[in-house]
């Protein structure tokens, strides 16, 4: 995963509250391998009707939304199931950032693990941006160092909050497994301590 600090791209409005991960990707699509690409499944049952016809009025289906990489939406985005496939669907569709007043905790962690920014703004800022974008998708700028977003070309800047650890990860493109494995000696010592003090933590008497 490569890190990033600035992004400029087309932003689209999804003026809906509580888009849960079941809506982001219905469960029936999750048996596919990731390599198959998840972009077509994004918000599937909202974007398409029962026989697979796209709803022309759905924000992501409008021609002017093509190529969007920033999604602005309402509160409690990504609540519900821990399915990381919800993030795969957003990422494979082309999104780099979602801007909303609140996110499900697990979704936010999954997003960052895939280089997708969950930018938490005030409800007022979200409404301001939605009002602009509902008229027509516009380009926006994201500054991950300053933690701010703005409509490109001098729009008002809105601060966003993001856990420091998450920001560092996005900026550096860190891979957790590599990082943790660097601490192998400390982990070995920790494990030995547990085996000595609380061997019962291992079912079967800690003989492993």
């Amino acid at each position: 995963m490569t890190g990033w600090t600035h992004h400029r791209g087309k932003a689209v409005a999804l003026p809906v509250e509580g888009i849960d991960t079941d809506q982001l990707i219905p469960a029936r699509f999750m048996s596919r391998p990731r390599a198959a690409g998840y972009g077509d499944f994004l918000l599937h049952d909202l974007r398409f009707d029962a026989d697979g016809t796209p709803d022309p009025d759905f924000p992501l289906n409008r021609p002017e939304a093509a190529g969007a990489s920033i999604l602005v939406t309402r509160r409690n985005f990504g609540g519900g199931s821990s399915r990381e496939a919800a993030v795969y669907a957003l990422a494979d569709f082309g999104f780099r950032a979602v801007i909303a007043p609140s996110f499900g905790d697990i979704f936010a962690a999954n997003a960052v693990n895939n280089g997708l920014l969950p930018a938490r703004v005030t409800p007022a800022a979200a409404e301001t941006l939605l009002e602009i974008l509902e008229r027509a998708p516009a380009r926006m700028e994201i500054d991950l160092e300053a933690c701010s977003v703005a409509v490109a070309g001098g729009g008002e800047e809105h601060a966003f909050t993001l856990d420091d650890a998450m920001r560092e990860k996005l900026v550096n493109g860190w891979d957790d497994i590599d990082l943790t494995r660097r601490h192998a000696p400390a982990l070995d010592a920790w494990r030995r301590g547990l085996k000595t003090d609380r061997a019962w933590l291992w079912p079967g008497g800690g003989t492993g």
Binding site: S82, R83, E84, I106, D163, D176, T180
Partner: peptide, 23 residues
């Protein structure tokens, strides 16, 4: 007890640990 995503599951499998911010 808490739920995690697939990247974190892979991390737990590989290291038996998980990175978490303190709630």
């Amino acid at each position: 007890g808490f739920g995690i995503g697939a990247t974190e599951v892979a991390h737990v499998l590989a290291t038996q640990t998980v990175w978490q911010s303190r709630p």
